[in-house]
């Protein structure tokens, strides 16, 4: 999975540079998040603007990161979901778990 990582203030922004998040590539996101947690970075924002397709494995990777960040008084937010990706969060009711923002700037400001 192609990812880009940049820091803005206390937040680490991970941009998923793949059209698909599935069982083949989601493990890479989990590994990268674990590296960040090991460095003590628990404020994450995942930019999903480039993702057109996500399955249960992709959702599971995000839930894993969310749980780990939350357990260390951090947070994992999502932004920039394409409509069909958003529909997956609604289908699985995960839109009630994650803070989901329209843009990166909104997420950084903390307003939904």
């Amino acid at each position: 999975m192609q990812l880009s990582v940049k820091e803005q203030g206390e937040t680490v922004i991970i941009t998923i540079e793949e059209e698909r998040m599935d069982a083949h590539n989601s493990g890479r996101l989990k590994e990268r998040m674990l590296q960040l947690f090991d460095e003590g970075k628990y404020q994450l924002l995942i930019d999903l603007s480039g993702v057109r397709f996500i399955d249960s494995s992709g959702l599971g990777a995000l839930v894993s990161g969310f749980k780990n960040a939350s357990a260390h008084d951090g947070n994992l937010k999502l932004c920039c979901l394409q409509p069909q990706v958003r529909s997956m969060f609604e289908l699985t009711r995960l839109h009630r778990v994650f803070e989901i923002f329209t843009t990166v700037d909104e997420a950084l400001e903390g307003s939904s």
């Binding site: 494995s57 839930v63 289908l91 778990v97």
Partner: peptide
């Protein structure tokens, strides 16, 4: 049913919904 914070177990439920 997958609990809200389960990391797996959603696949078959998704199939059954769709």
């Amino acid at each position: 049913k997958a609990a809200p914070l389960d990391e797996s177990g959603r696949g078959i439920n998704i199939i059954m919904k769709l």
